[in-house]
Simulated scan of single mutants.
Amino acid sequence: MTQFTRRGAMGAMGAAVTLPMLAGPALAQTKLTVGALRFTSHAASFVAFERGYFADEGLEVEFKFFQAAQPMAVAIASGDADYAVTAISGGLISLAEKGAAKVIGGALSEEKGIDGQKILASNAAYEAGMTSPAALDGKSFGITQAGSSFHYMGSKIAAAEGADVTFKPLQKVGAVIGALKSGQIDAWSIVPHIAKPLAGAGAAHIIGNVSDYLPDYQVTTVFTSARNAANERAKTQAFLRAFARGADDFNAALVDKTAGDDAAEDMVKLIHKYVYTDREYEKAKAGIVNGAMRINKNAALNMGSVQDQLGWFQSEGLIKDSITTETLVDTSYVDIM
Rank of each mutant, 00 (worst) to 15 (best):
I319L: 03
P192E: 08
A100M: 15
E110L: 05
Y281I: 02
L108R: 07
I143Q: 00
N209T: 09
P133H: 10
V268A: 04
T30C: 14
I143A: 04
I336V: 13
I295W: 01
A28N: 14
L318N: 10
N228R: 12
V74Q: 13
L328Q: 00
D80A: 09
W312E: 12
F65G: 08
L270Q: 03
I119G: 03
K320W: 07
G24C: 09
V334L: 03
D256I: 04
E62Q: 12
I190Y: 03
A44H: 01
M10E: 15
L95Q: 06
S225A: 12
T327I: 06
F167A: 02
A15T: 06
A163T: 10
P192I: 04
K98S: 14
E326G: 12
D262T: 15
Y213C: 04
T324H: 03
F223D: 03
S189A: 14
I177F: 12
A69R: 06
D308K: 15
S182W: 05
A55W: 05
Q309N: 12
L198C: 07
T327G: 07
K269R: 13
K273D: 10
G162T: 13
F63P: 00
D335L: 02
G11Q: 07
L180D: 00
D261V: 09
W312H: 15
A26T: 15
K156S: 12
P197A: 07
A12D: 14
Q309L: 07
F46M: 12
G202D: 13
E111M: 15
R241C: 01
A100F: 10
A44F: 00
A259T: 11
E265C: 01
G174S: 13
D115F: 12
V219G: 01
L270S: 02
E161P: 02
A48R: 04
G154V: 01
R294E: 07
P192H: 04
T331W: 04
K64H: 11
A203L: 15
G8V: 07
E316Y: 04
A124I: 11
V289Q: 14
T2A: 08
D82K: 01
A69W: 09
Q70S: 15
M337Q: 14
P71D: 00
L108T: 13
A69C: 13
S140H: 09
A77T: 10
S155R: 09
A230Y: 06
A96Y: 01
L32N: 08
L59F: 10
E282R: 13
G162K: 14
Q70V: 12
I194M: 05
I157C: 03
L310W: 09
D335H: 02
K196G: 01
T144G: 12
T327H: 05
A226V: 09
E110N: 02
A238T: 09
H272I: 03
M267N: 00
V17L: 08
Q145M: 13
Y53P: 02
A299G: 09
G147K: 05
V268E: 02
A43F: 00
G24M: 13
E57R: 13
K31A: 14
A264N: 00
K257V: 01
I93V: 15
T144R: 09
V173P: 00
A128D: 14
K181N: 10
V17H: 03
F223V: 07
Y152Q: 03
A9W: 06
G129D: 05
D262Y: 06
V255L: 06
G90I: 04
D256Y: 09
K168H: 05
M337Y: 14
A238H: 08
G35C: 09
